[in-house]
Computed example of a mutant assay.
Amino acid sequence: MRVATLGYQTWGHRTLQALLQSDHEVVLAITHPKSDHVYEQMWADSVADLATEHGVPVHIATKPDENFKSALKQADPDIVVANNWRTWLPRDVFDSPRYGTLNIHDSLLPKYTGFSPLIWALINGEEEVGLTAHLMDEELDAGDIVLQRSTPVGPTDTVTDLFHRTVDMIGPITLDALELIASGRTDWTPQDRSQATFFHKRAPEDSLIDWTWPADAIERLVRAQSDPYPNAFTHYKGQRVRVLKAAVSEGNYGGTPGRVFIHEGDGMVIVAGPDARTGQNKGLKIQRVRLDDGTELAGTEFFPHGGGYLS
């Protein structure tokens, strides 16, 4: 098939790469301009550079304006494949090719529509994550499902681990979905929109630890903000402290959320949870931290004794 791509960062790069290595003819690559947003500077393999290296025409756009539509019309694709395209597309764009537009989204839809699905899924304790190849319609990430692939979330997995596992699935799911579409099948699976959840873009405030969360949720937040993502952080005695490694405490600890309490094994326990006053909650054991100057310390070294509060 003649394929045009809408893609950005490593997700779009992997999609284009798979198509270039297939029997499909890539007739156009549309991508966003480079951004200074922290989450868009990570995993920033260039779609434009890859397309140019392979002689594929490139169009840079932030939204589907008239120049965008003209480039797509001139390319005359049989299908558009989108991955990590960041702005809304109207029907006269996604429906214009013969087979419409196939979107690759990095969640198991209908859950985790929108942004940063792997991070939110890990924070929320999902047992698996994955990719969905679906046909695009006018509602964000809501079209009929062509194919889904999943991978389990292990008890120590970080979001970086999950990124690498799911990004390796992009090529296979893209090509397998295109094969199903080209076969003439149309019996796709409608999404149950009553199960849909929609998440916003992450900002620095989303990495600030809330000590009223249960300790297991905070521990997952730490794993969901592993390098190179902006780390989960808290404040102690006027300085920002990034938490690199943490675990749920073995014992139950009571008091006020955020209290720097007691050493347990290789870490300092911080009182946590919405009902910490009952003494029935686990605490969060901080095992490794990073300061703003880049210094990394063991939790027991940074907190040589209990006392004070994290905020």
Rank of each mutant, 00 (worst) to 15 (best):
K245N: 12
I218G: 09
F199A: 03
T256P: 09
G255T: 02
G238H: 07
A246T: 15
D210L: 06
D216Y: 08
P228H: 04
A224H: 05
R259E: 13
V260M: 03
R223T: 03
D266W: 08
G267A: 11
L244K: 00
F199H: 15
A232S: 12
H200G: 10
E219C: 13
V222A: 03
R202W: 10
R223I: 06
G265C: 06
A203V: 11
V269D: 08
D216C: 06
K201S: 08
E219G: 10
G267N: 09
R259S: 10
G258V: 01
R202C: 13
P228E: 01
G254M: 05
V241E: 06
I218Q: 04
A272T: 14
I209S: 06
P230E: 07
F199T: 14
I218K: 02
A246F: 13
V222G: 05
W213N: 05
I270R: 11
D266I: 15
D210I: 06
A224Y: 00
P257Q: 07
E219I: 02
A203Y: 10
G255C: 00
L208V: 12
G238T: 06
L221R: 10
D275P: 00
G251Y: 09
G258T: 00
V243D: 00
H200N: 12
V243N: 03
F198C: 11
Q239Y: 07
K245Y: 06
G255F: 00
W211L: 09
N252D: 05
E219H: 10
V241C: 11
Q239D: 13
K237G: 02
P257E: 06
R220H: 08
R202V: 14
S207W: 07
E264D: 07
T212F: 08
D216P: 04
F233P: 05
D210E: 15
Q225E: 14
V241T: 05
D275M: 12
Q225M: 14
F233Q: 04
E250G: 13
T234L: 02
F199R: 08
E250Q: 13
E219N: 13
P274N: 09
S249R: 07
G265K: 06
R240V: 03
R242K: 10
D266G: 15
T212L: 06
H263P: 11
S249N: 03
M268N: 09
D266P: 15
E205F: 09
L208N: 07
L208W: 13
V248Y: 01
A217M: 14
A215V: 13
H235D: 03
K201Y: 04
P230K: 04
S207V: 09
P214F: 06
D266S: 15
A246C: 13
V241R: 06
R240H: 01
V271H: 02
H200L: 08
R242A: 15
G255H: 01
A224R: 04
V260S: 08
L221A: 13
E219D: 14
L208A: 11
I218N: 03
Y229N: 08
T234W: 01
H235W: 12
Y229L: 14
E219P: 01
V241A: 04
G255Y: 00
Y236A: 00
A272V: 08
